[in-house]
Design a protein around this nucleic acid. Structure first.
Lengths: 243, 243
DNA sequence: TCGTTATGCGAACGCCGTTAGCTTAGACTA
DNA sequence: TAGTCTAAGCTAACGGCGTTCGCATAACGA
């Protein structure tokens, strides 16, 4: 079919980052596809972590040379952008319909976080790049929908949804920082805790046992519910006083 | 004086990360000091951003060779840890005494964020490293103090303070992602926004003008007040029902 | 059938962090 | 004061990274 070779379809990753200078022609002539590259990248990420995603490793996994990769991807950064966005298609699964806006927001936030934690490599890629791909935009649209539907004006709704996203991504980063290389890292951390004399940080020493029990799940839940109840209060107040 | 040459003093950065295997002897013999290295690193960061902080640049700025740096610092990572912690001495400036706990928390959070934004290089270093130096620990201690004083149990107080820190750091990262390389980056972002047809993301298109006006300051303030009012509600509820 | 051109490859460039091995200056001991 | 020891500097290099240049080639449009 002619439509088969008419270039990347709207909605696909290739379509989004299509080079502007390049007319929409067919691009694959032989074996190496952008999709194949992304697949191999995801495999590398899931098995070896973010550090394993090098162009050399990628080329070796695909059985090609590094230079060939650059026929399909401008940069490593573009590759990362595409990867992150591909991994962010979580928004497609809809939250339960019977929940109110806060319930839906919490559901989505938890889902998003769990998804990121399940693919730690992708999550650590979120550190470098802040670009917005199509799926990210869909997520923004969705949470905007929620907050506007709840009664916030578009301006406040946008701020609220960005704040929520900021917190979710931030706590994933927080998680990753804790889990990386347990053996050496936590040893060092414990060393720091102990080497300080008790007089300077009394609370830390006094509740050291409790503090070490507080995991990132607790932090996430505490922050999430606090944020949402905060927004709820804001909505009630704004709805009442028309501020 | 003998006390003058008795190694790094307690409280200094050198003292914190002193090698365990190495007995506390005097370490500096000639010119190149750890403090000088940290100073030069901060200059590099403030002028050229995080990317400029390479061991080569650092050595050149100090007029020594790269290898010499490793006599004072184990890794680049240790250097980063020390730098971040040095930049985190904001906690030493106390918030206004007449404010309540939420006011103090908000004050500190704003101060912390502004400080990080003033030194963007340091902030982007926060991405890679999650180690806790002495100043970071002091900050944790302080916010713990606030939340416990407000009426939260140590467990919840710890979660709340971590959540707050997560949000603050997260929003700084958010900021940096937006501001980096305006020329090319924002052009690309605008391209992404426009190339999507209006039918798929109606809200984004409808409120595009308002959305573009919502800056990271708004996002930060919205999230901060939401978090704090959320915690306030939690405290009232917990204080009432002893949950 | 024959150019055009997208797509692969080999080889290299310049950057990065890091290390091994030497020299030397300064502090300690006798 | 003379001698020793060692921290602190240097030279040179290693391996890995992302990226690019130039060439070969296979598929498509005419």
């Amino acid at each position: 079919m002619a439509a088969e070779t008419a270039g990347p379809k709207p909605g696909t990753a290739a379509w989004w980052l299509a080079r502007e200078d390049e007319p929409a022609r067919q691009r694959r002539r032989r074996s190496l596809t952008l999709e194949a590259i992304l697949d191999a990248s995801m495999t590398l990420l899931d098995t070896g972590g973010a550090a394993a995603l090098t162009m050399r490793n990628l080329a070796e996994a695909l059985g090609c040379t590094q230079a060939s990769l650059y026929r399909h991807v401008r940069n490593r950064e573009e590759l990362v952008t595409l990867l992150v966005d591909r991994a962010l298609d979580v928004a497609s699964s809809a939250p339960p319909e019977d929940a109110d806006w806060a319930g839906k927001a919490a559901w989505s936030a938890r889902l998003f976080r769990e998804h990121l934690l399940r693919h730690p490599g992708v999550a650590s890629l979120l550190r470098g790049t802040e670009r917005l791909g199509p799926n990210s935009l869909a997520g923004v649209q969705y949470s905007l929908e929620l907050f506007i539907g709840a009664g916030l004006g578009p301006r406040l709704a946008s701020a609220a949804s960005s704040a929520l996203a900021t917190f979710v991504i931030g706590s994933v980063h927080f998680n990753l920082g804790l889990d990386v290389s347990d053996s050496e890292e936590s040893r060092h951390r414990r060393l720091l805790y102990r080497s300080r004399d008790a007089s300077a940080l009394p609370l830390l020493v006094e509740h050291a046992d409790v503090l070490s029990e507080v995991g990132s799940d607790d932090v996430f839940e505490a922050g999430l519910t606090a944020l949402l109840t905060g927004f709820r209060v804001l909505i009630e107040r704004e709805g009442g006083t028309r501020d």
